[in-house]
């Protein structure tokens, strides 16, 4: 078997195993959260009997392992379950005849929105970081290099909500170029959607650029002392060509890994930004679900975040393997 294919399959199997372990960790951790849905929903009027009734209704009184494997089994067969609030709503309306909306349908539009925001940010942030990183490596020590470093470092050091408000202040309030609320709707045409989501995307760009840009710069500079770089210079190749053609292809592996980590962050770490801009993504849904102890939703959100990490890191692994000619072209 071709080594790349073998390594890919190995990584894939490892990824699945990781997800199973993660599912258990999530289930156990959520199980440890203080308070439960019944208490949260009943609030002041929580009599022990009422709490017990609700707990029985939604199966909270079953033993831990049974609940875990029930949940896992349903997951594997594609059934993400129904949120507690949906179930309560159904029982409250008094009947089996009311159609339950499964979590899948609840999450799907939110998931799409989050991926849209992450994708939009990636399209802006990755090329900018790589270009600035390459230029900073080329003109290392120059004013450009310092300004790039200072700007990206200060943006990563500031809290996200602060960056979000600064951008809102200038782009939405002072100059009124962009809308301050990013409330996208499913019917929006693509360009309007991009326009509406641009402010959160720019905020996230500021947050993720620093890592990627600095890794690009460092990985390239690391290689500049290599004999093959000297050789390229001695062949009369121009400095920018030396970096783009000779250093960058060999620096890809660490860059890809940092890019993947940051993309994963875009999927999972956007909660604050989504809340600030009232963006209807998974982060927002997640916060609501935690507040009302809606465990099935919390679990699925966590699992989506974990899968994003696993998948993106898997992709990064495979891409950095592919960037190594020794593995791509065995002897």
């Amino acid at each position: 078997m071709h080594p790349v294919l073998r390594i890919t399959l190995q990584r894939l199997a490892l990824g699945v195993l990781t997800l199973v372990i993660v599912s258990f960790v999530i289930f156990a951790a959520v199980n440890l959260l203080p308070g439960d849905f019944a208490q949260a929903i009943l609030g002041q009027g929580a009599t022990p009997e009422a709490v017990e009734a609700i707990r029985n209704d939604i199966g909270l009184n079953d033993p831990f392992w049974i609940r875990y494997f029930d949940w896992l089994g349903a997951l594997v067969s594609g059934d993400l379950g129904v949120s507690y609030s949906q179930m309560m709503f159904a029982t409250g309306m008094g009947g089996e005849d009311i159609q339950l909306i499964p979590i899948t349908e609840q999450i799907a539009p939110r998931f799409y929105n989050t991926m849209f925001l992450a994708g939009l940010t990636a399209i802006i942030a990755v090329p900018i970081s790589l270009a600035v990183g390459v230029l900073a490596a080329l003109y290392r020590g120059s004013a450009f290099d310092r300004i790039a470093n200072i700007t990206t470092l200060s943006s990563i050091s500031s809290p996200e909500f602060f960056l979000a408000y600064v951008l809102t202040l200038f782009l939405a309030v002072q100059w009124q170029i962009l809308p301050s609320l990013a409330s996208v709707t499913p019917e929006m045409p693509l360009f309007e959607r991009i326009y509406t989501a641009l402010l959160p995307a720019l905020t996230l760009t500021l947050v993720v650029t620093a890592h990627m840009m600095r890794m690009t710069r460092a990985a390239i500079i690391n290689l500049l002392a290599s004999p093959y770089i000297e050789m390229a210079r001695l062949k009369g190749i121009s400095p920018i060509q030396v970096i783009v053609k000779h250093a960058l292809p060999n620096a890809l592996a660490p860059i890809i890994n940092v890019v993947a980590l940051n993309l994963a962050y875009l999927v999972t770490g956007v909660v604050v930004v989504e809340v600030v801009f009232a963006y209807p993504g998974i982060g927002n849904l997640f916060v609501d679900a935690v507040r009302s102890r809606d465990i099935p939703v919390v679990q699925i959100c966590c699992l989506i975040f974990a899968s994003a990490y696993v998948l993106l890191n898997l992709t990064a692994d495979i891409l950095s393997i592919l960037s190594n000619p020794r593995l791509r072209h065995p002897k």
Binding site: S226, P227, Y228, M231, A232, K235, P249, R326
Partner: peptide
């Protein structure tokens, strides 16, 4: 490269692996 060329000590290190 055109009129003056260089041959390095370690060819293995001086050829770009990529």
């Amino acid at each position: 490269g055109k009129r003056i060329a260089y041959v390095a000590q370690s060819a293995a290190a001086s050829f770009n692996p990529a």
